[in-house]
Computed example of a mutant assay.
Amino acid sequence: MDPAPVLDLVDRHVAEGRYPGAVVALRHAGTTTVHPTGTLAVDGTAPVTADTPFRIASLSKPFGGVLALSLVADGQLDLDADVARWLPELAHPQVLRHPDAALDDTVPAPRPVTVRDLLHMTAGTGLRMDDSPLAHAMWQRGVSPGPFPPVLDPDTWTAGLAVLPLADQPGAGWRYHTGSDLLGVLLTRVTDRALPELLAERVTGPLGLTGTGFWTDQPLPVLYAPGDDGLEVLDPADGVWSRPPVFPSLGGGLVATAADVCAFLGAVADDALPGGVRRADVLRDGLTDGQRRAAQAFLGPGRTWAAGNLELTLEVTDPWTTPGRFGWTGGTGTTAYADPALDLVAVLLTQRLMTGPHDGPEDFWQAAHDAVA
């Protein structure tokens, strides 16, 4: 692999001001290249380095998936168990008659929410990008997904979510994000351990990922959102992720280096995860046809959501994909996938919030594919 075209592309994006800085990590045929470029802030002088931690947003989800599967592997957790065993707030859920119904227009759920539902995003609750009563209520209660971890403590957050009805019957649909944060609360209650300690003990520690955690005392890039007058500060260098969080979020709360994310996905690809977690478990497509159809609106065609809390390609719909490619993208400008058919793991971490589905890293993925295909 000649990484130069990929690195030149990212250097050009930095030079053009798309984002102040970035780090690329590429692993191909046993060789890993890590390339930092740019600065930590607009008009700044402090450089991004290979060890710079970035807010990886929804790239946190696969770390949470592997953590949960490690508890399954050693018998502490049953994927088919009713979550009410550990999350009694979610016992006897009520479900809207239709997703846009009034909050009191509900029916009882015919079955409980399971641990599997949390992993697969089929619990009936999650991101609502509409004007429905439920979407408004989630925002008002501080339980709607966003670019920052919840500001409520886990118990208060769970209680606030639980008083709201589900949008879908458990197992009937697919709703993004919230299942991951519920999973984090559940794992702490299953083990009676703090989530940062649990993740370090079972995932990041055994894999040697010293740059990954829920906060950091290392210099962080300033996080920006595109605005009418250019990049606008969303989170400063000493902002949310510079101190221990109130709510450690498996949905989007981790910071990590590009090398750590590359090593993590490489461990999945190599079937070298700790704790008895197998690659086949992580990449298992557990969605039904109906659930997969519901997920297509968010994931896009030809893709599914695997048990390890990541996207899995089933059919080629973009020229840079192959069947079996897996990974995910974070809204803060992060993306990471492993492509076993190409023996490629590629990671791009930036500090520029993505504004929508057409503001993503497609050119990066095309360049990475072309460099090895």
Rank of each mutant, 00 (worst) to 15 (best):
D229Q: 14
D82M: 02
W305Q: 03
A46P: 00
D363G: 14
A272I: 10
T37I: 06
A25V: 02
G253T: 08
G146W: 06
F148A: 13
L166P: 11
E197I: 01
G275L: 03
T31A: 14
R116W: 01
A297N: 00
M1F: 08
A280H: 15
L312M: 03
T212V: 13
P245V: 11
Y176L: 07
A50Q: 10
E311C: 01
G173S: 12
Q169S: 09
V42K: 12
S70H: 09
L67I: 13
Q94L: 15
F214V: 04
Q291D: 03
D168Q: 06
S58Y: 00
G276C: 08
T114P: 02
A338F: 01
T158P: 03
A68R: 11
L348Q: 08
V282K: 13
H28A: 13
A225Y: 06
A159C: 02
E197P: 06
L198V: 00
L234W: 12
G21W: 08
R55Q: 15
L312D: 10
H358E: 10
L231I: 11
H369K: 10
A346Y: 03
R27E: 06
A29D: 15
T317L: 09
H28R: 12
C262I: 00
P236G: 15
P165C: 03
V6M: 07
I56G: 03
A297R: 09
P133E: 02
T313M: 05
A237G: 15
G251H: 00
G184W: 00
P274R: 15
T114F: 05
H358W: 05
A123N: 13
F247R: 05
